[in-house]
Write a protein that binds this DNA or RNA. Sequence first.
DNA 1: TCGGATACTGATAAATTTATCAGTATGGAT
DNA 2: ATCCATACTGATAAATTTATCAGTATCCGA
Lengths: 123, 123
Amino acid sequence: MYRKKLPEDLECGITIAMKSFGGKWKPCIIDAIDKGFRRPSELHKVITEATPRVIDLQLRELEMAGIVYKETGSGFPLYTAYYLTEKGESILPILSLMNSWGLQNKDGVHDAQHQKKKRVICI
Amino acid sequence: MYRKKLPEDLECGITIAMKSFGGKWKPCIIDAIDKGFRRPSELHKVITEATPRVIDLQLRELEMAGIVYKETGSGFPLYTAYYLTEKGESILPILSLMNSWGLQNKDGVHDAQHQKKKRVICI
DNA sequence: TCGGATACTGATAAATTTATCAGTATGGAT
DNA sequence: ATCCATACTGATAAATTTATCAGTATCCGA
């Protein structure tokens, strides 16, 4: 994992929150897991824009942060499922607040001058 | 400003929220303005880690997003002040939620192996 | 024994965000 | 005329996050 060179303020709750569940895919992943898409392959099916590799990396970070945990069955085919921890679930209300705020404030956000090709499922 | 090359999902509220007030300094700036530090120089005094240039860039983006607005006096010395719009104020409860979540979950966040030199004032 | 499905990894590149540096501009005071 | 404080800008570099590509490994069933 990338080793940071610039200092961060780990006393600031917002910084910690951002670090824990901010970023491009983490909120989507948390939401999808909550909705019952638990296996990496399922997650990739609902979050089509992100490659499995990217989803995997994000899952690893969420795991490190104690937001999801992993369950592995040794059967066939390989079975892995991710679940939200209690800590992970405590994020849901925040995400839902952010989501409604965003939806109520779509205006003033100018499109980045290009079409999106696929749709991300996200709350 | 940087011209994006990768698509974004502007239907997703969270993406919009992140785009609007996510990032390294925006939450701090919003909070500081709310606390009454309105002038660029004042903001720099409380957010010492960020250079005036960086703060200025963030302010510009917050302005574009309709989160702050600017008032300019033509007197001496040059006087500029930023205020939260209604939209900007509607972010405060979210920030405060994120902040308490972060503070309650400091654990599991490992320091990025170096000391921070200065302290950011942030909620 | 081979192939398909699933989960995962290492190395590297590309995109994006932040930071740095060296300026411009204004108007009053010295 | 020069300097100081304030706000701001352009160009560029550095840091960080995301994406891409090409793999490895497991197990089953054909």
